[in-house]
Design a protein around this nucleic acid. Sequence first.
DNA 1: TTGTAGGCGTTATCAT
DNA 2: ATGATAACGCCTACAA
Lengths: 351, 351
Amino acid sequence: MTSSRRPTVNEVAERAGVSIASVSRVLNGKGARAETERLVREAAAALGYIPDATGRSLKLGRGLQVAFAVDDVANPVYTEMMRGVEDGLRDAGQQRSGAADGPRLVVASVGHELEDLIALISSLSRGFADGLVISPLRTSPALVTALLEAPVPVVVVGNPGDKVPIDTVRTDSGRGVKLAFGHLADGGRQRIAFVNGPSETAPGRARLHGFESAAEGPQGGLAGAVVEASAFTVEAGEEAWARLAALPARRRPDAVVAANDLLAFGVLRAAVSAGRQVPRDLAVVGIDDTEYARIYNPSLTSVSLGAVRRGTLAAGLLLDRMQQPSRAPRTRRVNPRLVIRESSAPRSVRR
Amino acid sequence: MTSSRRPTVNEVAERAGVSIASVSRVLNGKGARAETERLVREAAAALGYIPDATGRSLKLGRGLQVAFAVDDVANPVYTEMMRGVEDGLRDAGQQRSGAADGPRLVVASVGHELEDLIALISSLSRGFADGLVISPLRTSPALVTALLEAPVPVVVVGNPGDKVPIDTVRTDSGRGVKLAFGHLADGGRQRIAFVNGPSETAPGRARLHGFESAAEGPQGGLAGAVVEASAFTVEAGEEAWARLAALPARRRPDAVVAANDLLAFGVLRAAVSAGRQVPRDLAVVGIDDTEYARIYNPSLTSVSLGAVRRGTLAAGLLLDRMQQPSRAPRTRRVNPRLVIRESSAPRSVRR
DNA sequence: TTGTAGGCGTTATCAT
DNA sequence: ATGATAACGCCTACAA
C-alpha cells in the first residue's frame, strides 16, 4: 500500500539533470530559466515529488502549522471559534504572503487538566506548531509562566490575568450576563436565578461578577439564587436545575440566566422533563449563542460572544506576531450582543 | 515574550561536560553510567531542554502524530469519533510501546470538497502526520488512488468502495434505517417518509438502500415520500421538511426517518415551528445518536452507529499498520443500535 | 542563471 | 561507556 519511499530533491534533480539548488529554487518560485523550470517541474511531477515538511522546517526554523488548543471539543462554541481561526489564517495568509494559503490549522484537544495545557505549551516545538491559539477555562501562575516562556507565539482568547504581556482577544462576558438579566427583568420576571459554571474559572468569575453587579442595579431586587454547576456542560446544567427546583417555593426562580448555552440546555432539558412550561413558567437565557440555540425547542435566547469573530481576530494577532515576534502585545475586544428568541418571551404575552 | 532560543543537545552536552551522543542516549533511555546520567539530566532540566520534534523526525524518518480529517467539525458525530480515536491512541500506545503515551492527535478540518481531502492525503508528509484516519462523505476513483498511494498509513471509517485493499471500520447504516423504519411501523405510524442526505455520498447511498429494502419488507406499504436534502445539516433538514409539508394532505407523512441527527433536528425545528406536535402528529427518528439527541425537546429517538467505538477501532487498526506496513488490510464492524426516546412514542399512547 | 557546500537538531554507527 | 562523526531532506549564502 504505502509506496516504497518518498522521492527527495536529489532524485528530482538527477532526473531533471540539474542541481538540487535549482530544484529548490524552481519549486519555491525563486526564479530560474524557463527551460530549467520546465525540466524541474516535469521531473517533480513524474516522480510525484512532495517536499518533506520536516526537512523544510528544520532548515527554515519554522514550519507552517498553527495549533488551536481547546478544553472541550464537544462544546460548539469552540468549533465555531475554530472556524473563525481557520478563516483568519486563510485570508490573512493570502493577503500577507500572497502565498496560495496560510498555515495549516491543527487542533490539539487537551484534557480539562490545566497541567495538560501547560505541558502542551512548553512541549510545543517546531515541527508541531509554530503558533498557538488557546482559550483556557482556568488559569494559574504556572500557566502564565508557560505562556510567557512558550517556544512559539501564543494568542489567548480570554483573560489570562491582568497585565500579562501577551496578545489577547477579549469579551466582557460579565456585561453579557447583565444584558441577559436586564432582558428578563424587562420581560416581567420576578425572581431571576443564575446558573454559573465553576467560579474558579476565568469565565465563571467574570460572569458571576456580572450577575452581582446586575443585582446591585435598579432591577437588582429581582436577583434570585446563584447556583454553581460543576462544569460548563449539559449534565451539570441538569444537576443545577435539580438544586433550583429543590428550593422552597417562594425562592424558586421564574427565570434563569445560564453561564453558557450547554448549561442552559441542561436546565431546559431538566425543567421541561419535570413538566415546566418554557417560557410560560420559566424563562431561560444562555450565553455563547451557539448554533443549537436557534434550533432548540423552544429556541434559546442567548448572548452572543462572537466566537467566530474572536477566532478570526486571534488568527490575525498570531500571524502578526509570528512575523514580528518583538512587537508590543495587543488586545482586541468583541462586544456581547443579546439575541432574543422564544425561551425568554415576556411573561405577559400569551403564545 | 518568546525566549531567545530553544536549547539544543549541544548546549546540554556542553553544560553537562559530556558529548551530544551521551545526551541523546541518556534522554532516550539507552543506558549510561549513573554519574553521566545525573549530569545530563541536571543540565537538561536547568536549561529547560525539550527535544526538537523536527530534528528527531528528520533523523528517525517518522514522527509521532496522527491526523484525523473531518468533513464537518460542527457535526457532533465527528467530535465523538475523535474522542474515540484519542482514547484508542492513548490506550493502545501505552499498551504497545510501554511509552508514556501514544502519538499526538491533530485534527485537520478539510473543506467539503473532495479535492481538498485528496490534496491533504497526498501532501501528507513526515512532520505533519505519520498516520491518518478519515471518514469521508464522498468518494471517487481519484480518492481511492490517493488513498492507495498515500505516503503514510490511512484508515477509513466508512466505505471507500468495494474491494479497496485498505483498513476500514464499517457499520451497516442501511440496516440502521431499517431498524428506525420498523420501530415507527410498530408504533402505528401509517406513512413514513425518509429524509436522506445527498444520495451521491457513501452514507446517503447506503441509507437510501436501507429505506428501499424496508419498503419491500412486510411493513413496506407504510413507506412514504423520499426527500433528498442538500447536505447532512440542520438547515437542509428544515428545507426538507418544507418540501414534505407541501405535499398533498394524503401523502403527508406522520413519521420521518432522517439520515442523521442534524437532519432530524432540522425537521423537528421546522415542524414544531409550523405547529406540529411531536410525537403526536409526527414521529421523528434520527441516526448517529448524537449527544444532542438525548437533550432535545422532545428527546430524539436515534440509531447509534457507535461513533466513539468506531474511532477507537480505527486508532487500533492504524497503530497496527504503522507498526507492520505490509500486513493484510482488515475490516472492523460496528452494529447499529436503536435508542428509543420521546420523539417516536407510539401513536396510540397518550403522553 | 546555476552549482557547490554547509548546516538546521537529532539519532546511530563506529571507533576508542 | 563514551565520543567523534555521518547522515536524514531541505534551503540558501557564496562562488562560478
